[in-house]
């Protein structure tokens, strides 16, 4: 899934500034088609298959999120604080989304894969590098949730 981000950079002319983006991106069109399908799938699931968008979270998680300032945690599919257009008027939220995305994009290429490439496909193919990457995913994720969230949202 994350290699499509590299393909987008290559299509956008990234090959002019870095060898990393100099490859035959046309060989990756199939993967972009999967992305197009995923977008359609998200549209269908959201509009036609999900009458109730609430998430049945563990009540402990809900309490914890409320203390971090996420009101009505679980009553919507995504927290409105971060994922509503109103939330975007707050520069802090904008920064959170941008930095979060940046780390995902940078980290995925550095590690050579994301959740689909390492955690699902890599582990399925019994690849040790993928196990190391998944351990990294959790070191980063746990650090964010346990140490940085109280500083960012508290």
């Amino acid at each position: 899934m994350s290699s499509n981000l590299r393909t987008v950079c290559a299509i956008g002319g990234g090959g002019k500034v870095a060898d990393f983006f100099r490859f035959d991106w046309k060989s990756q069109i199939w993967n972009l088609v999967v992305v197009a399908g995923a977008i359609i799938g998200g549209f269908i699931a959201h509009h036609y298959l999900t009458p109730d968008p609430s998430i049945a979270l563990n009540p402990v998680t809900v309490d914890r999120l409320q203390s971090l300032g996420f009101e009505n945690a679980g009553s919507s599919y995504l927290p409105q604080e971060l994922f509503s257009l109103d939330g975007l008027s707050n520069p802090k939220n904008l920064a959170i989304l941008l930095i979060g995305g940046f780390l995902v994009g940078f980290g995925a290429r550095y590690a050579g894969g994301c959740t689909s490439g390492h955690a699902i496909s890599g582990l399925s193919n019994l690849q040790l590098p993928s196990l190391i990457a998944v351990i990294g995913f959790f070191i980063g994720g746990l650090t964010m949730i346990y140490f940085l969230y109280p500083l960012i949202f508290g």
Binding site: G42, Y110, G141, M144
Partner: peptide, 28 residues
């Protein structure tokens, strides 16, 4: 794998989405 994985994990937990879900949520 370890360093890249850590950076990825920090972003995954902050944005609450990895690449696949980004496309899906855009479609939604």
């Amino acid at each position: 794998y370890l360093l890249g994985g850590c950076l990825f994990g920090l972003g995954w937990a902050l944005a609450g989405a990895c690449p696949g879900p980004m496309y899906i949520l855009a479609g939604a």
